[in-house]
Nucleic acid binder design. Structure first.
Lengths: 216, 216
DNA sequence: CGGCGTCTCCCCCGTGCGGGGGAGACGATC
DNA sequence: GATCGTCTCCCCCGCACGGGGGAGACGCCG
């Protein structure tokens, strides 16, 4: 009985690549494809794959939300293998926190991809589940994350915070956004107030600690 | 033929615990112990263990340097399993970059510890070697790391940078260190100059990006 | 011994930063 | 139509910050 796989990625090319690699294995069968996270639930329900290979960054519903949705709504859910282009992608960590069972780089060698699919299918989630799982869990410590979630920053404020976290001054942010420095000051003040930060330095710290921005 | 293991940890209690857990397995044999990194090389040369379970934080020579030393000087080196108390320990990432084959939490369950030793002995380094290895490699991006290494901060400056990266003002740092604020200003200026940072905010960013401080 | 580096502290000075408060324009919502 | 949230911009003000330059004390090392 072969391992059945559902591919979820918004790029057809990536799906084709994965399909080619996986179908070459006699014990692995690709049973379906989806181009965005929203289509995953009905497909999983219908096809009941053993493994879902899911891109993290997708339009409509991203890999994190799709992972949560699958785990929440499907009884005896499939194993979820998160596929990403970049290592150290904060989305990957969020996906692991959301319950994904493993992650895979797009530029991995075919043998590694096949290996990964077989391993997650066997239930061997991660080499040291405790370590990696809690690594993911701790990544972005809880207080900082909650602070930032409760902050409920507006879109503009999020943009400003990202620029602050890249070390820009108010004047530089203003130039970047084509607005006046006074406007930036307003946003910065709002951000600081919402984060409970005294100055931009503390805001940057919160941004890193919460995983809002990630090193590297 | 059993798997032979060398234990390296400065705390006898931890060594005893690991020994107890591992010796309970018929196919695993603890062939030696060392209390610090400096003693590792001759012991490895003499005992030729399959696996070295090594603490990262040790006096004299830490786990990172010891790992490098073993890999550099021993032909056909043993597998190195890095042991740590905290997940998300930046030292662990450095050790993995240095060539360690896996990592293990001290609070892992005995079965997980045994499992980890068997897996690394079999050469199954990490579930997705590429992913995790490069995760470790990217952890702390190269430029930032090199900036910080080239910076060659003095001990005092490092301390000050850590406090800056915790969001303290100069006055607070001064209070913390029992020195005058003018002194702190001197150190801060030195840090900024060495890091090529314009202000403390950019210094914090460099600290995070380089892995000098880590989220969570 | 004389240098060198580190840590400590001092003064002057400009300015970017952040708080407080106010206000107009726009869109969504009720 | 009125209300609310968001984004935009303005003024005043105090201050922490950071640069420049100088200096004494200590320990290390050639």
């Amino acid at each position: 009985m072969p391992v059945t796989v559902l591919l979820v990625d918004d790029e057809p090319l990536v799906r084709a690549g994965l399909r080619a690699v996986l179908e070459a294995q006699p014990d692995i069968e690709v049973v379906g494809e989806a181009a965005d996270g929203a289509a995953v639930i009905p497909l999983v329900r219908q096809l009941r794959p053993h493994v879902v290979a899911m891109d993290v960054r997708m339009p409509l519903l991203d890999g994190i939300e799709a992972t949560k949705a699958v785990l929440r709504t499907i009884p005896d859910p499939p194993k979820i293998l998160v596929v990403t282009t970049f290592e150290n992608d904060e989305y990957v960590y969020r996906a692991l926190r959301a319950g994904a069972d493993g992650f895979l780089l797009k530029r991995a060698r075919p043998s590694e991809i096949v290996h990964a699919v077989r391993l997650v299918a066997e239930g061997e989630t991660l080499l040291f589940p405790t370590a990696v799982r809690s690594l993911a869990a701790e990544y972005g410590n809880r207080e900082a994350r909650e602070t930032l979630e409760r902050a409920a920053l507006t879109e503009r404020e999020e943009v400003v915070l990202r620029l602050i976290a890249r070390g820009l001054t108010n004047a530089e942010i203003a130039a970047q956004l084509y607005v006046g420095t006074e406007t930036v000051k307003s946003h910065v003040s709002a951000v600081l107030a919402k984060l409970g930060a005294r100055d931009r330095t503390q805001a940057v710290i919160t941004a890193y600690e919460s995983g809002f921005v990630s090193p590297a």
